[in-house]
Each structure stands twice: as C-alpha cells, then as structure tokens.
Amino acid sequence: MVTKHLSRIYTALIFVFLYAPIVVLIIFSFNDSKSRGNWNGFTIKWYIELFKNKEILRSLYYTLIIAITSSLVSTIMGTFAAIGIYDMKGFTKKFALNLNYLPVLNPDIVTAVSFMVLFKMAKLELGIITIILAHITFCTPYVILSVLPKLKQMNKHLAEAALDLGATPFYAIRKVIIPQIMPGIVTGALLAFTLSIDDFVISFFTAGKGVSNLSIMIYSMARRGINPVINALSTLMFLTLMGLLLIIYKRSEKEEEKAIEK
C-alpha cells in the first residue's frame, strides 16, 4: 500500500516537473499585468493585442507558407523515396536506410550551420526560399520513416498484380500502391508540417534578414524585453502543436490496431 502511494506521488511529481513551465506560461498569458511575478486578474487582452500586431501576423503567414510548402514537397519526395528504398535489396537498402537516419539524428545546430554554409557557397541569398529548402530537407527523412512501414505491411504481390493486368509501373504506383500506403503518407505529411512549425534553430540560421517565422519572432521579442504577448503566442503555438501531435498519435494507434487485427 505504502509503496503504491509513493509511486503515485512520484509519478505526479514528475508530471508537475515536466509540465510546470508550460502551465505557468499558459496561466500568465491570461495575467492582467506586465510583470511576470504578480497575478493581477484574468484578461485576454494579450491575445487581442497579438492579433493586432502586424509583425506577428506576418510571421504567422510566413510560418504557414513555409510549413505547407515544405510538408507538401517533402511528402511527395519522401513517398517516392520510400517506394524506391522498399524496392531495393541487400546492402543498397541498408545503406539507403542508414543514410536516411543520419539527418534525423544529426544535432539541429549542425544541420543549421551546414545549411547556412551551403547556401552561402551556392550564392543563394538567405530568405524564404532557403528556409523552405532547408525545411524540405529535414522533413523528408521523417516522411520516409512513416511511409516505409505501410509498404512493408502491404501484400508484396499487389504491385505485381497491377503490372500483370497491364498497368505501367507509374500507373501501378498511382492506382494501387499509393492508395494502400495513404495512411502512412498522411501521417508523414502531418509530421512534416508539425516539425516545420516547431523548428527554430534551422530556420534561424537560414532565414536571413527580412523573413521571420513565429519561432524566430518569439525569440527576437524575448530579446527585446518582457512582453506578455509572447506568452499568448507561445500558448497558441503549444496548443497547435499538441493538437497536431495528438492527431498523429491517434492515427498511428489506429493503424497498429488494424495491423494486429490482420
């Protein structure tokens, strides 16, 4: 009995520890005071101010453009790459898979600096294009990783059956393989979208001057000084990302159940 209670208290403490910063952030985004220390009553004026701030709205617009473009492109590239990798055999397959893991494991800061150096070398002016290119690159491996398991689950004769019935390889991919792996593609796209919104380090190094997305915006506002609008903006970002992650989690859970049923 005692150990059971202890373990419960311990778990609770861990959650408090983990979530305290975010809870505080959310609470203070409703605080009617400029100072961070005192509670002066409930307000939503920071949220209203947030949506009046042109700069913030512009960076929201950039964030969405970047996230939509890069998740779209990386989903298409990742899906075809996954189909290609699935079709490989032996050493080439292992090699391609590990090559794909590397960017996932690479520290963001290293990726970010390498992008910056690469773009400088290629004489590309840093701006929205470079951010999008960088985001496409770091999102694609995640799409591949979410599409590959669906390919493995698929009956391996399905593509052959399509070819057998007269389909060209491209037609077979379009009409048979893609419908079969659609759940994986959608999960991959959501994941890419989430990662793109979530990213700060790589965006910061590849953004150049005029362009800033929300995470860069929050960073520069925080440097300028304490402003409760940051709390409101961060709260909204947190909730959006949590929502997206929840959807991804639910989807993969459903897929697993399906796989077990089979």
Partner: peptide, 15 residues
C-alpha cells in the same frame, strides 16, 4: 504489362 499473360497469385493479391 506488355505480355498477353495473366496471373492468379498465391494469396490472390486482390486490391
């Protein structure tokens, strides 16, 4: 897809 031959696969491979 260019052969006038069709196949019934093991475990059918229906779509």
């Amino acid at each position: 897809y260019l052969r006038q031959i069709n196949t019934v696969f093991q475990r059918y491979a229906l779509f």
